[in-house]
Amino acid sequence: MEINAPIKARQALIVVGALAISLATSAVLLRGVITPLERLARRMDTVDLLRPGQRLPVGRGDEVGRVVAAFNQMLDRLERERQESGRRVLAAQEAERIGIARDLHDEVGQLLTGVLLQLNSISEAAPEHRAEIDQTREAVRRALDEVRRISSALRPEMLEHLGLVSALTELSTTFARISGIRVERQFDTSPPVLSADAELAVYRIAQESLTNVARHSSATHVTIALERGRDSVVLRVVDDGRGFGGAPVEHGGLRSMRERALSIGGALAIKEGSRGGVDVRLELPTARVAHGVAVD
């Protein structure tokens, strides 16, 4: 088309219209490219390797699609590496716990037992000081009980010898006695057989959950359950305390619980309970399914 100088109104309208169509077409095309890149940028900002499975859909075969696919592949690799490194760290921690527990039992425990025996001898030799000796002896007994409690928490021997349900029963009974919080247990009568690593992870997550209840919740009642899901085994620890008081900030113990869940391929959810308090739910996939729950 020829354009006169000066340009006529009709010609100006045609040029402006053509430019508008061109700009609109470019905007649509660019939007199709920018939108998935924006989603990719947001996911990069929020991705958490302790919450696996955060993938972006790949719905195109161009360069943008290949970038998104590469990002998903990178997450696959990083999650595998994080899981393996976390497993090694947890194994090292458990080995250290066992060493400390052994030292407490063999060294400190025996030393305190020796002190008790000496106090018994002194009490017989000096009956006039029996009241003071009895007070000292009681303090030593309390210290010995505390050493045994710490040693048992560091190294759950019942888990090794009698299995997960017995270990959780002992854990919750000790928790109720020390904290004064009423505990309701709901344990499957025939839980699936788990690997030693999986049983230990379930036990530690239950232990950390109960510790958090005692320290932070001001709860009067807590339910601990180990049940079969549809294709899984599920641990739940639910209390009636004050909850998070907002969005939970996960650090320290909560992050450690996620590390343990990740190390055994489980999914951990920590949220406000339906009636207040906190609801901790660990789901571990399993091929075995059965029914029957014992409640006490």
Rank of each mutant, 00 (worst) to 15 (best):
T113E: 14
R137L: 04
A139Y: 02
E138K: 11
T136N: 04
T173I: 03
D103L: 13
E146Q: 14
V140F: 07
E81H: 10
R87V: 02
T136P: 00
E96T: 10
L112Y: 06
E157D: 12
L171F: 02
V89S: 12
V108Q: 05
E81W: 04
R82Q: 11
L104N: 05
L117Q: 12
T136I: 11
L144P: 01
E96H: 13
L111I: 03
A92E: 15
R142N: 07
Q118P: 01
R155H: 11
L116R: 14
H105C: 02
E146G: 03
Q83K: 14
L111P: 00
Q118D: 13
A125N: 06
A176I: 07
E138R: 14
A95K: 08
L154E: 04
A167S: 13
G163V: 07
L90N: 01
E81T: 10
R97Q: 11
D106M: 10
R102M: 06
V108W: 02
L168E: 00
R148Q: 13
H129I: 02
L159E: 00
L119H: 06
L154K: 08
H105E: 15
A131P: 01
L104D: 04
H129N: 07
D145N: 12
L168R: 00
A153Y: 11
Q135R: 15
R149D: 12
R88Y: 06
M158F: 01
V115R: 08
L116I: 13
A101V: 09
L111A: 14
E160Q: 13
S151C: 06
I98G: 02
S151T: 09
R149M: 08
A95D: 09
L111S: 12
A91N: 07
H105M: 06
E157V: 11
E124F: 07
L119R: 07
A131L: 09
G114F: 05
L159P: 00
H105F: 04
N120F: 02
S85T: 15
L154G: 03
L164S: 01
I122S: 03
A92M: 09
G109M: 07
R149Y: 13
D145R: 15
V89K: 09
F175N: 00
R137G: 06
V108F: 08
H161D: 10
A131S: 10
I100L: 14
F175M: 08
E124A: 15
S85A: 15
R148L: 05
E146T: 09
E138V: 05
E170V: 11
A176Q: 12
L104H: 05
E170N: 08
T113W: 07
R102K: 12
E146R: 13
I100V: 15
R142G: 03
R87M: 09
R142V: 09
A139W: 01
G163Y: 01
Q83E: 14
G163K: 02
A143C: 10
T174W: 02
V108K: 05
R97E: 07
A92I: 05
E124S: 11
P127L: 04
M158V: 15
T173G: 10
R137N: 08
Q93I: 13
P156W: 00
L162W: 04
V147Q: 03
L159F: 05
R130W: 03
